[in-house]
Design a protein around this nucleic acid. Structure first.
Lengths: 214, 214
DNA sequence: CCGGCAACCGCATAATCATGTTAAAGTAGC
DNA sequence: GCTACTTTAACATGATTATGCGGTTGCCGG
């Protein structure tokens, strides 16, 4: 990999922009194509500079980095975008990640690591401030839903419900569990009572919305 | 934060275990309580050492780190667990994250960073090898489903399907759309054909799985 | 020991659903 | 104009589901 990495920087704060620019320029292997104060001409910028990596502040006058991100990924999904921001609220982070950001650094990140991050994303990594990473992880762990509440369903009744949620007919469920069709009916009746519904569909929808099972 | 961080290390490979142990012991601010070759007595280990951070290999004789992880989080969710492994397959990673791992390092991580990772998790971060981080991010981005494709369902057919997904009966759907019961049947028939299913439940489940639910 | 509950089973009836067949009116494209 | 597809609709039959009203076993805790 001898060709330098083409970088585009967006940052409205002049001091910061020039500071980071200086570092990027001074780093071997990087080719800073432009350092711009706003992202309003993102399309022409991209066309003109064909960057490999875009470093982008979120909060800028005019279009924000969050708005520009989908445009970048739409034009060329191979461009790696690293967001640079002072905000670490969940909403912004997840929106950024969903839109295709490859990295998310807080502005208190040491300059050296910002440079490192450029190399990181370019070789397939995802530089993240540790607090951001933690938030992402918590997203996976949260499936420990707060409300495992009521249920009231017995083990067998859950078996039956799971059957329903697989799209099975009563007969199939009966076969699967090795019990009689009438018994399945029996259980289903009780499930309906407890869930306060009166059809297969409602039961399934409720079960899914409620989270438990499946 | 003056009290040292209490660390527990699990690693079956002797050389590695002793290498990491040495580093941890030599680091100010860390208190390596034990370095064990297997995780089979995890409960008593935890009780005896009250660690703040657990470094754990995944592949060990007897119980694996992946199996031990939920036990650790169950006993004390405040214990930060960092997994240390040679595997980077999606399955393992996501299982680990779901089970409550706070960090996930590949074994080619430089020893110095492993030590750094201990401090990281302890102060709320989530050290991750960059390739792992990337996989995690891709998880968020994938909702940009490859195919919004086929459907093939007409506008009216979608109306009917939405009715089903609200748990409505044919009759209710007919009323809602101001058409006859038989017409609803007609549409449903076509929906079933196009979705390759043959029951309300299957149609709903398929519709949800296919994503265009809302 | 007994009452309560989970799990099992049966029979019966009405409602709903699945499916076949057929067909008219409208819209769109060739 | 002809073809294709959507939307509407009717009639019919069998399958499945929803409910009602019974039962018999066990097991558990008071």
């Amino acid at each position: 990999m001898n060709t330098p990495i083409k970088v585009l920087l967006y940052e409205d704060n002049r001091d910061l922009r020039e500071g980071i620019s200086f570092l990027l320029q001074a780093t071997a292997g990087l080719d800073l194509r432009a350092a711009l104060p706003h992202v309003n001409n993102i399309r022409t910028d991209l066309a003109a500079h064909q960057p490999d990596v875009v470093l982008m502040d979120i909060n800028m006058p005019g279009m924000t980095g969050l708005e520009a991100l989908p445009i970048v990924k739409e034009i060329n999904p191979n461009i790696q975008v690293v967001l640079l921001t002072v905000f670490d609220d969940d909403e912004r982070i997840f929106q950024a990640l969903r839109s295709g950001a490859s990295g998310y650094l807080l502005k208190n990140t040491p300059p050296g690591e910002i440079v490192q991050a450029v190399f990181d994303v370019h070789k397939g990594g995802s530089p993240m401030t540790s607090t951001v990473a933690r938030k992402v992880l918590q997203f996976f762990q949260q499936p420990v839903k707060p409300i495992v509440a009521d249920h009231d369903l017995s083990a067998r009744e859950l078996d039956i419900l799971r059957g329903l949620m697989k799209g099975y007919s009563y007969k199939l469920i009966a076969d699967e569990l090795g019990i009689s069709l009438d018994t399945v009916r029996s259980h289903i009746r009780n499930v309906y009572d407890k869930l306060q519904v009166n059809s297969k569909t409602e039961a399934i929808l409720k079960a899914m919305k409620e989270g438990w099972v499946g």
